[in-house]
Computed example of a mutant assay.
Amino acid sequence: MSGPLLCEGRVVIVTGAGRGLGRAHALAYATEGARVVVNDLGVGLDGTPGPDSPAARVVEEIRAAGGQAVAHGGDIATTEGAASLVRTALETYGRLDTLVNNAGFLRDRMLVNLDEDDWDAVLRVHLKGHFLPLKHAAAHWRAEAKDGRTPRARVVNTSSGAGLLGSVGQGNYSAAKAGIIGLTLVAAAELGRYGVQVNAIAPAARTRMTERTFADTMAAPDADSFDAMAPENVSPLVVWLGASASTGVTGRVFETEGGRITVMEGWRPGPTADKGARWTPSEAGDTALKLLAQAEVPGAVYGAG
């Protein structure tokens, strides 16, 4: 006999949920009993408007399987779009428990060829598109806590290995994804008093955004083999982080790919030296080289050398 559903009764927002990872997350939450607000603007890979509504198709999938879902097509990188996203959850289901920030697209260029518009567009959808839904959801949860109804709220942000190590040809994307990690840490520290836990994932999976990155592993697996790059592999951790079962876990970053989950450990003090007075430039350089010789070698930037 199966046990209780992990997210029974919870209301979950998933942004960028029309395809890829977001769609997998939305379906996984619904399978675990959540009522899901499926957000997707319906744009192309580069952020330009698309011809149909992928959010509505995912809602139909969820409903056909016996779940509950509603579509939201607003632009969550605008104040009104983010506010209406939260309103949709509250007006449709009367509550909000979990926010999964997932929306994004790519405009890859080497730095010397990267236009300002391409920089702004990617920072806007990834970083601002995380900040604004988080801001409006957090305002609701703070009001609930102040009224004596402290929630068991959860936020799952979507970073990337590019945000942890960098990625050649993706200066805009890498900067945005690194910014999401910083935002996650601050939000976890600020919102814990209101019953809100905030974590981030750095997933690797086969989606529209990663077709070129994982070109060598895009071939469909044999029927009996494990498809390590399927986006559905990432969703179980996202569902658990968005459930009450994850109580006590906040301010963390998890890398997840295939059947592997890794707790990522970010910047922390390594080898250090203190003269107790001002260094000369030569002294500072000699000391830096000695410290580097004692330090761990950083991970390689994706696509380098």
Rank of each mutant, 00 (worst) to 15 (best):
S159R: 09
L21I: 11
S160V: 00
V156M: 13
T262S: 13
F105N: 07
F226N: 02
S225F: 13
R95H: 10
A187S: 15
T272W: 11
A187N: 08
T256V: 15
A83C: 06
E32Q: 15
L123R: 07
A153T: 01
K146I: 03
E91D: 15
M218A: 15
P51D: 11
L289S: 02
R35V: 06
I13H: 03
P133F: 08
V12M: 08
K135C: 06
R87V: 03
E8P: 01
L164M: 09
N102I: 02
A220P: 00
V43C: 15
T213A: 12
L106G: 07
T88A: 10
G18P: 02
G67A: 10
L21C: 06
T78S: 14
S244I: 05
T98M: 02
M209Q: 09
L6I: 02
L5K: 15
E283G: 02
P54A: 09
Q68A: 11
A243P: 06
W279V: 01
G20C: 06
R63Q: 13
G169R: 07
E61G: 00
A64T: 00
V59W: 00
A176T: 00
A245F: 10
V12K: 04
A288D: 03
L111W: 10
M1R: 06
A202R: 03
D97V: 01
G18W: 00
G9A: 04
P49A: 12
S225P: 04
L289P: 01
G242R: 02
E61P: 01
G171W: 03
S235R: 05
A145F: 14
G166F: 10
N172R: 07
R152G: 13
M1I: 04
G248T: 02
E60M: 03
G259T: 08
R149S: 13
A245D: 10
T150C: 14
R212M: 12
V263I: 12
E232D: 15
L45A: 13
A162H: 06
K290D: 14
E232P: 01
N157A: 14
L106I: 12
S160G: 01
A30L: 07
E190W: 07
H130C: 12
A137N: 02
R206K: 14
T213E: 13
R87M: 08
E80Y: 03
V253H: 08
V238K: 06
G259A: 15
L127Y: 12
P269A: 14
A30Q: 02
G148E: 09
D118G: 03
H126S: 04
A220S: 08
W267G: 10
G303N: 08
V122N: 04
V86I: 15
A26H: 04
E8Y: 11
Y173M: 10
A17P: 05
S84T: 15
A28I: 07
G192D: 12
A189W: 14
G276C: 13
D227L: 11
H25I: 05
D222P: 04
T287F: 02
A205R: 04
R208S: 10
T272Y: 12
T31V: 12
G248K: 08
T272D: 08
G66R: 03
D40M: 03
A30I: 00
P133E: 07
G3R: 12
V14C: 04
T92M: 03
